[in-house]
Design a protein around this nucleic acid. Sequence first.
DNA 1: ATTTATATGTTGACGCTGTCAATATAACAT
DNA 2: ATGTTATATTGACAGCGTCAACATATAAAT
Lengths: 205, 205
Amino acid sequence: MIHQKSIKNNYHHGDLQNALLEETIKIIAEEGVASVTLRALSKRLGVSRTAPYRHFSDKTQLLTHVAIIGFERFRKHLQVSKEQRNNTILKQFQLMGAAYIQFALRHPSYYKLMFSEPLLTENRSIALEVASNASFNQLLDILKQCQQAGVLKNDDIERQAIFIWSNLHGFCSLILEGHLPLKKQQQEDAIVYIQNTILQGIEAA
Amino acid sequence: MIHQKSIKNNYHHGDLQNALLEETIKIIAEEGVASVTLRALSKRLGVSRTAPYRHFSDKTQLLTHVAIIGFERFRKHLQVSKEQRNNTILKQFQLMGAAYIQFALRHPSYYKLMFSEPLLTENRSIALEVASNASFNQLLDILKQCQQAGVLKNDDIERQAIFIWSNLHGFCSLILEGHLPLKKQQQEDAIVYIQNTILQGIEAA
DNA sequence: ATTTATATGTTGACGCTGTCAATATAACAT
DNA sequence: ATGTTATATTGACAGCGTCAACATATAAAT
C-alpha cells in the first residue's frame, strides 16, 4: 500500500482545523447541512476520513463550531447598523431588524444550522450559548438606547427583546422552512408591514 | 386515533400502515425525531425492517404523513377556541394564540417535525402543504371575523396573519430550540406580553 | 373449489455513515 | 540523536436506508 499523501510534507495538512471549518461552510452553502459528511468533507480536503477527529471530538462538535462562527458573523452583520451614527437611534434599530432578515435570507443554511435545536438542546455547548447570547445582546443594547432616548416604551427590556426576536426569527424560519411561499415583492411588503407593526406595539406613546 | 381500524384484521399484520404512523409518533414523543429509524420502528411492531416499504415509498414519506396528522390535530386544537361562542370574537382570537403556543410546548417533537424544512422544501408534498394551509386558514378566518367586527385594523389579511404567525412560531421555535431558557413564570409572563404587544400593533384605533 | 392475481411481508445484500482502535509519520523539545 | 507530542492513516464495526429477489396471505376470477 502506497500512501500517496506521504510523498513528502503532505502528511500534515498545516491548518486542518480551519480548513475543516471553512470547507464545512462551503458544503453547507452549496448542498445544505444534510450533505455535510465527515467522509465527503475529508475527501474534499485530501485527508483521510478520520483526520477531523484530531481537531473535533465528533461531527456534532464540528457543526457546533461552525454555528459559533455563524453567530459571530451574524453579530457583526447586525452591528454594522449601529455604526451608522448619522441616523437616529430608532432608524438604527430598524436597520438592525432589516439586517437580521437579510442575513437569514442570504445565508439560509447557515442560519438554519445556527438555530437547529439538537446543537443547543441535546448537545449543549457553552461556547455556542455565549455566541448566541452575544447576538441577542446586540438587540438588547439598541433597545436600551431607544428606551433611554424615549422613543420606545419602558417595558421590561428582556420581554421586549423576546417579542422582537420571536417576530424576526419566526418570519425568517417560516420562509426558510417553505411555509410562506411569497414572491419577492410580497416578501418585501411583508417585511415593511412587520417592521411597522412591531413598532406600533413598542413605541412610546 | 389516526384512522379507525377495520373491524376485521384481514392482512398479515392487520393494519400496519396506521400502526407505523402511531408508533412513529410514540417514538418521536419518547426520544425525538432523530431516533425514528425504520429498523427500530419495525422491530417495535414485530415486523421486518422493510415492511414499511409496502406502505410508504421511503422514510421521508412516512414522516411527511406523520407531519400531516400533526397539522390536522393542530388545526383541531386551534379550532376549539373558536367554538367558545359565549366569548367575544377578540377573546376567541386571543384564545387561539394561547392554544397555538400550548400545542407547540406540549408536543415539542411533533411541532418540530411539522415545521422541519426538508419536508416542505427538499421533498415537497402537496398533501402536507394542504394540511399546513388548513391550519393557517384557521388564523385567517378569525382575523377576518375580527376585522368585520371592527376590533382589528383593516390591514391586508394575509400580511396581518403572517405577522401573527411569525410571532407565535418564532417564540415557540426559540423556546423549543433552547435559545430562550426561561423559567415557567418568565415564560408565562412573556406569553402575556407578546399577546398584548401583538394586539397593540393590529387592534382598531 | 381451484386457480390466478394482488397485496403484503421477509431475507440478503449494498453502499453509505460515524466512530473506535491500532498504527504510522511529522514536528518539536531536549 | 532521542524521546515526546501532535497529527494523520488504515482497518474494522455496527447502524442506517433501500433495492432486488423471494415468500405467503388474502382477494378475485374461473
